[in-house]
Structures are given as C-alpha cells and as structure tokens.
Amino acid sequence: MAITLETLADAITRANAAMSRLTDVLNAADAKLGDGDTGTMLARLIGTFAAVDVRNAENLGAGFMALAKAGAASTGSSLGTLIITAMMTAGKATTGKTELDWSDLSGLLAAIRYAAMVRGKAELGAKTIIDGLDALASSLEGKTDAASVAAAAEQAMDAVLAEFRNRPSAMGRARMFAEKSVGLDDPGMLALAEIVRSLAKTAQHGATPVA
C-alpha cells in the first residue's frame, strides 16, 4: 500500500489526538529556555490541520497545500512557519499525484529539510528540528513499506535526541543560553520526535488512536 490522502488524513487525526498528551510535555520542554508555548502552538496548528477536509482534496499536492494555507492563518511562530514550509514543499513535490510510494518518503523529507534550512537560514548541527528531519530522512532510505518506515523512524528519533541532547544550541533564542541548553532536548526536535513516535507506534501496532 502507498501513501494516499487517506494515509495523510489518518496521520493528522492521530497527531491531533496525540497532542492532548504532548501539549504539556512540549510546553514544559520549551519553558526551560523559551516562553513555554511550543505545545500550545503545535496543538493549535495540528488542530487547524485536523479541521481541513484532506480526504476530499483533489490529490496529495492539493491536500498538502490546503494544510499549508490553513496553517498560514493559524500561527506565526518560527516552528509553525517551518511546518507550513514543510507542507508547501510536500504540496509542490506531490502536485497531481494521488499516491506516493513509501520508498519516496525519504526523498520528500530530504526536500523538506532543505526547504526548512533555506527558510530558517539554518545549518545542520545547530540542534534544531532540522537535525531531526535530517535524521528521519536518512533513516528511511531504502524503506519500502509502512512497517519498516515506522520502525526506522522511531529508532532515528531516539538516536537524534540522544546525539544532540548534550550539545549546545546554536540557533534561535536557545543559542543565547548555549551553556544551559546542554543536557536539554531542543523543543522543536522533541516535538518532531514525539509526533513521529506516536505515528510510528500506531503503524507498528495497529490503528488504535494514540492519546
């Protein structure tokens, strides 16, 4: 089975359900060096995505673009804008397509990582969500089905968080607390990891909604 609008809609529903648990976790992670609103912002953004009728979009490209458009009206935060950039990139990459092979997901994520780097004027290694995307894209190379994608993605998220936890942040507000950021997860990278883990768990263990 390939990735379709149904897969996309289902992933959004599950991510939205997961936010009921993750909002406080991510707010707490952000509050250590930031203003403590990453979870709240992400819950609002994913809630906005969940309200979009993705299933009835014309094709995958139109579905992703509808998500980008809805998101653009929902948040102005840096992380939110990078997620909107991701949706636009995916929309452009899947224009006119009704299906995407699981084996193409790695390449799509690499394109999203590049677009986020350009938009955010960010480099790899700065301890941001972009490092998480890089790890995710690399881990999915050669994976051709949902189960192997899920297993590799979950492992990649554990590994990238562990790899960067004890490094100083070099981007955004956290760069001003570079020393204090050592030992802490970057909130954006953590958000990506937690949502990927939630989606991966359901992909590996059946379609029970995660909350």
Partner: peptide, 14 residues
C-alpha cells in the same frame, strides 16, 4: 501592521 499572538510572530496571512 501585522499582529500575532502574545510574543509570537504574526502569521504569513497577517
């Protein structure tokens, strides 16, 4: 002037 939520940038739309 575009205005965002408290301490959050304005949206692209704004």
């Amino acid at each position: 002037c575009a205005i965002g939520n408290v301490f959050e940038g304005p949206t692209i739309n704004s």
